[in-house]
Simulated scan of single mutants.
Amino acid sequence: MEAIVESARRKGSVLVVGLDPDLSRFPTELLRSPRESGEESVLPGVVREFCLGILEATAPFAAAVKLQSACFELLGAEGVGVYSDVIREAERAGLPTIADVKRGDIDASASAYAGAHLSRFGARCVTVNPYMGADAVKPFLDEARRLERGGGTFTLVATSNPSSVAFQEATAPPMYEVAARLVADLGQKSGDYTDSGAVVGVTRPAVGARVRELLPEAVFLAPGFGAQGGGAAAVRPLLDRRGGGVIVNSSRAILYAHEGDPGADYREAAASAAKRSRDELREIGAGF
């Protein structure tokens, strides 16, 4: 987690750019050749070009990058290769990477997932599903600590999708509190924050405020900003007592900003959207 905190301080930004490549929304100039040739085999290369273009354009405004692994896996083995390439290039550009894989297995399987995404592919952090308890989270923390790269985990606690309420708030105590306590129990402090972070959506600010009470020293990865309707003001209840502790993800609003201006270069549009998001978050005092 230290790597992300240090990057946020250096950049003066808490913005995370989410890479969720969707070919149906790519700019036409990138897809023209594949469509004309009818060769699907070139599509992974198109995804690579798009993602690297977004990385270069948004790097000045972002603290980190989050890659949604499913979008790359959809392209098969070559897509996984692109996923690995983009992680490597982001890290070279000084952007710590979060592998958004939401794995939740145990024992040897969890260790294998951790080794794949944190060691072989080289991500700093990974998202994990705690439904199977500490056994599903600890192998990822163990691997991150072994690598000593300032990484860690972001455990799903209070997610931004609408139906999450029916599950995460249905029990007494609510499941999000149980998950938050697991995050607290597993974390080891390094610097100002622990290496065990939490996914807490900005679309549920009241719940986020309660999770912050339970996790005063954890970094929150906050989805739901931008395309999912969460605004900068909804980030405030998630902040810690220093006004930090939160990194905010925006994916579609940045990746596909060019859709609002068909004549715009997708990289320039993404850069403008990322700068705007960074500035909005600065205005509410979010920072490390």
Rank of each mutant, 00 (worst) to 15 (best):
P139L: 08
F121R: 11
A114M: 10
T127I: 10
A136F: 10
S119Y: 05
V137R: 05
V137E: 04
R146F: 06
R146V: 04
G115M: 09
T155S: 10
R145C: 13
A110Q: 01
A114S: 07
D107E: 11
G152D: 01
S160F: 09
L118S: 10
A134L: 08
V157N: 01
L147V: 08
V126T: 13
P139K: 06
A114P: 01
G115P: 08
R145G: 14
N129G: 04
V157D: 00
S160M: 06
N129K: 01
A110W: 01
G122E: 04
N129S: 14
S109V: 14
F121N: 03
R120Q: 11
D142E: 15
L141S: 09
T155N: 05
R146I: 05
R145A: 15
R146G: 07
Y113P: 11
P130V: 01
P130A: 08
T159V: 13
L118C: 12
Y131Q: 08
F140E: 02
G150T: 02
T159N: 01
T153V: 15
V128N: 02
E148T: 04
Y131I: 03
N129E: 07
S111T: 03
F154A: 09
R120T: 12
N129Q: 14
N161D: 12
R146W: 04
A108Q: 05
F154T: 03
G115F: 08
T127K: 13
R146Y: 04
S163D: 14
A144S: 15
S119L: 12
F154E: 01
H117I: 11
Y113I: 02
A116W: 08
Y131V: 07
L147R: 13
G151L: 02
F121P: 00
E148K: 15
S109K: 00
V126R: 00
V128W: 00
S164G: 15
A110S: 04
A108D: 05
A134Y: 00
P139I: 10
V165I: 15
F140N: 02
G122I: 05
S160N: 06
I106K: 00
T127G: 05
L156F: 06
G150D: 03
I106W: 07
I106P: 00
A116L: 15
H117E: 04
F121L: 15
Y131W: 14
L141R: 11
R120H: 11
Y131D: 04
A116N: 01
R120K: 13
R124I: 03
